[in-house]
Amino acid sequence: MTQDGAIPATRAVTPLGWLLIGFRLVLMVLVFMLCAPLHLLWRAFGFGRFWPRVFLASIGAIAGLHITVRGQPARHALLLSNHVSWLDIPTLAHVTGSAFVAHDGLADFVFLKWLCEMNDTIFIARHDRQSVAEQVEQVRAAMATGGALTIFPEGTTSDGTGLLPFKSALLSAATPLPPGIVAQPVSLDYENSRQVCWVGDEPGLDNFLRLLARPRPIRVTAHFLAPLAGEELADRKAMAATAHAKLLRHLSQ
């Protein structure tokens, strides 16, 4: 990061950084070539998301991600997490095996869409009111199958030092929760989050390459807070307000 707080541009990557980028990209391609066919074979026999979880965890490890877990992740949960970086995805996939809810802009990139669909990502068309009912059914079906499903209620990324307002509309499909599913806030705390975050006008590819160029590990602590209970689950607005307050209180400590 520069002295004025701006995110450094990709062109500032050192020669060593470019070597790290090349090395890590080769490893990522090799992991993909291993996991993709095994995933297709796995799915042909009706099994779950084992190989996408392996793939995402490997991507995080190759990128230098070091994960510490605090608290107890619920086994069957709707995870409500703050959103700092694309590394949030491999972090939560590694720890919980979670699927994700993402905005439909990602679906414009064919390869990225295919990678997301490997892990049962649900795409939300935020500006298409006519498809809301269908999206609600997709989210509820994903929760009903068990496991974990992650929503980033901020709707975008922040710099990790605070918390943007939660968009309660993103939780409309989760009210009421299916039987056996809990809503659990998750705080992702990055060491030097301002150097990791993806905010402002930085292109996504630049951010991706910039993080791959880092020689130092990227340390993140995933804090799993107590699940919401009682009146905290009354409706989507109560869920959003309570989860936001709990995460904000944790981040301010």
Rank of each mutant, 00 (worst) to 15 (best):
A173D: 02
P203M: 04
V110E: 12
A63N: 01
L225G: 06
A243Q: 04
T156S: 13
L177C: 02
L251T: 11
L40F: 11
R140F: 06
L225W: 07
K113N: 15
A99P: 07
A213N: 01
R53P: 04
L211T: 01
A44I: 09
G48C: 06
E232S: 11
G160L: 07
N82D: 06
H127G: 08
T161D: 02
R214L: 14
L247Q: 06
S158F: 04
A107E: 12
V26T: 14
L171G: 05
I122V: 14
I181L: 09
H127R: 15
P37I: 03
V31T: 11
H223G: 04
A169Y: 01
D159E: 09
R53K: 14
D189N: 13
R129T: 12
S168C: 09
F109D: 14
P179L: 08
A74P: 02
P217Y: 09
L209V: 12
N119S: 03
A222L: 09
G22C: 10
L228Y: 08
T161R: 13
T221P: 01
T145H: 13
V139N: 10
L38N: 02
T145Q: 15
F208K: 03
R24P: 10
V199R: 08
A148R: 15
K167T: 10
A36P: 00
L87E: 06
V110L: 14
R75Q: 15
F123R: 01
F109G: 12
P153D: 06
K167G: 06
R126D: 03
G204Y: 14
I181V: 15
E154V: 01
Q135Y: 04
V29R: 07
L209E: 05
L40M: 11
A241G: 11
F123L: 04
Q253A: 15
H83T: 10
V186G: 03
A174S: 14
K246Y: 09
V186Q: 04
I59L: 15
N119E: 06
L177P: 04
S131A: 14
L247H: 03
R129C: 04
H127T: 15
A102L: 13
A74V: 02
I62G: 02
F47C: 11
A183Q: 06
S168F: 07
V196T: 10
V186M: 07
L38W: 01
R49Q: 12
R11K: 13
L205K: 10
C197G: 01
S85I: 08
R126N: 04
V26Q: 05
